[in-house]
Design a protein around this nucleic acid. Sequence first.
DNA 1: GTATATGCAAAACTTTTGCATCCTT
DNA 2: AAGGATGCAAAAGTTTTGCATATAC
Lengths: 135, 135
Amino acid sequence: MSTAKELKEAGLKTTLPRLRILSVLEGSQGHFTAEDVYKALLDAGEEIAFATVYRVLTQFESAGLVLRHNFEGGRSVFELDDGQHHDHMVCVKCNKVTEFYDEEIEKRQQAVADKHGFKLEGHSLTLYGICKECQ
Amino acid sequence: MSTAKELKEAGLKTTLPRLRILSVLEGSQGHFTAEDVYKALLDAGEEIAFATVYRVLTQFESAGLVLRHNFEGGRSVFELDDGQHHDHMVCVKCNKVTEFYDEEIEKRQQAVADKHGFKLEGHSLTLYGICKECQ
DNA sequence: GTATATGCAAAACTTTTGCATCCTT
DNA sequence: AAGGATGCAAAAGTTTTGCATATAC
């Protein structure tokens, strides 16, 4: 799965800034604010404009390549969308983000929506607490 | 449950702006952006500064009188904290907010946290979709 | 009277946008 | 060559803050 191909399939031109941002998102952490991405590129010695980071992340979101989350704290957090839905646990001390998936929770959400005649289109579930390492 | 008493118990002086904001929050809708509160007061002919609305809401949050939510859309939403925990369904068309509570979801969240050695302190669950009226 | 709260304006932050220039195809 | 992308700077939107004045106790 070449990153260039991913861009093509999303209908986006293969440009250096986009490839660089994609490669950051594919890094180990998985969850990034726009600033995280910007700094990661600067640290790697790669020039980029902050506005471009936002524009590209927004395009990636529209193209379905990236998910955007609004955790507490006011800043958007972005992650690659691998198609596997999951929810998040965020450590309030170190900000580490851990993913999880619980079939029963998913089912109950749908049941709750159904009960209210609400047509469910998506959801956001985030657990806040202290991760094992920070306790 | 006089509102003045609520303020006293929270350790806050009983001032007119605070009483007015409290009375807005006690209104029927239940969920307000800072702007909602500000406009409600202006519409009622009561002068107030936008900064005061934010300051008071933030104080109320610290005092445990009010909960602050970060739904999609970037603006904070505030509601009185009546002590009864609940989650939210937000209509993506009319922005109406409906509350719900599901015991099973709560339990599963704790179970997920336990499984990861995560000390759960809170959570945020919001369902997005189209409410009955908007369909 | 003293401490605290408010109003106003300005600042701080995050995110978006206009426009000239540059790059991809 | 043509359309779209980037960089820069400025704007927009939300929330916070400094400071003089006003208010609660």
